[in-house]
C-alpha cells in the first residue's frame, strides 16, 4: 500500500500516456488533455512545498545559529516581501480579484515589479555575466592548439567569436559571417543530430525504466 501501489500507479499512468498516442479516440484524447491540464496545477502545490521547505531551512538556521545564519534573514525578507507584494495591490489590500479596476494587484503590483526589476534581474543578469570571466579562463586552457582536435576546436571557436565582434565582423576577404553561419548550419547540425539521437535513446530508456518499475529511487526510501 505504501510503496507497491504507487509503483503500480506509475506503470498505469505511464503506459496510458504512451499507448494513448496510438489510440485516436475521443475518450482517450479527452483523458490525455485532462492529464496535461492538471499536471501544472499539481506543480504549483510542489512550488508551495518548496517555499515551505526554504522557510523551514532558513528559520532553523537562524534558530540554531548555524554557520552564516545572518544571511538567512535576508532570504526570508526577500521571500516574504515578494509574496506580500504578489498577493496585495498597491494600497496593501487583498481584493481576490483580477479585474482592470484593481490594476496593480498580484504580479501587476508596482512593488512586485520593482523587486523584480531592481533586485531579481540585476542579480540574475550579473550572475550570468560573471560566467564570462570563468569561461574566459576555461577557454585559455581549451583553446591551446596542442593537437589536431584542439586546433579544430580553436579555429571553430575563433571564427564564431570574431563573427560577433563588431571590428572583425566582416573582415576583408575572410567572410567570417558566412563561414560562421555555415559552421552552425552544416557541421554543427550533423554533430548535434548525432548527440540528440544518443540523448533521445537514453531518455526513452530512462522513461521505460521508470514506467516498468526498474528505476525506483525517485520515490525515496521507507
Amino acid at each position: 500500500m505504501k510503496r507497491q501501489l504507487p509503483f503500480f500507479l506509475v506503470f498505469v499512468f505511464g503506459a496510458f500516456m504512451a499507448i494513448q498516442y496510438f489510440v485516436p479516440h475521443k475518450t482517450s484524447e479527452a483523458i490525455y488533455e485532462f492529464f496535461i491540464d492538471i499536471l501544472p496545477i499539481i506543480g504549483v502545490f510542489a512550488l508551495a512545498l518548496g517555499i515551505w521547505s526554504l522557510t523551514k531551512v532558513s528559520v532553523d538556521k537562524i534558530r540554531y545559529r548555524r554557520e552564516n545564519w545572518q544571511y538567512a534573514i535576508f532570504t526570508l525578507l526577500g521571500l516574504f516581501l515578494m509574496i506580500l507584494f504578489g498577493f496585495t495591490d498597491e494600497n496593501w489590500g487583498f481584493h481576490w480579484r483580477m479585474s482592470p479596476e484593481v490594476a496593480g494587484e498580484g504580479t501587476d503590483n508596482p512593488n512586485f515589479r520593482l523587486l523584480f526589476n531592481y533586485v531579481m534581474i540585476p542579480i540574475q543578469a550579473t550572475m550570468f555575466a560573471l560566467l564570462a570571466f570563468f569561461i574566459a579562463s576555461a577557454s585559455y586552457r581549451a583553446f591551446r592548439a596542442r593537437n589536431l582536435l584542439a586546433t579544430l576546436l580553436l579555429i571553430a571557436a575563433l571564427i564564431l567569436m570574431l563573427r560577433f565582434t563588431p571590428f572583425f565582423g566582416d573582415w576583408i576577404g575572410l567572410r567570417l559571417s558566412e563561414t560562421a553561419t555555415w559552421l552552425m548550419n552544416v557541421p554543427n547540425t550533423a554533430a548535434q543530430r548525432a548527440i540528440v539521437m544518443g540523448v533521445g535513446l537514453g531518455l526513452v530508456a530512462t522513461a521505460l525504466k521508470v514506467v516498468l518499475g526498474i528505476e525506483r529511487d525517485y520515490m525515496g526510501r521507507g
Partner: peptide, 24 residues
C-alpha cells in the same frame, strides 16, 4: 553572500506568485 541569499528568497517567491496567478 548577502546578494546570493536575497536572490534565493526573492526568486523562490517570484515563481510561487507567478505559478499561483498564471497557472492555478
Amino acid at each position: 553572500k548577502f546578494a546570493e541569499h536575497l536572490f534565493v528568497g526573492v526568486s523562490a517567491a517570484y515563481w510561487m506568485v507567478l505559478g499561483f496567478w498564471q497557472t492555478l
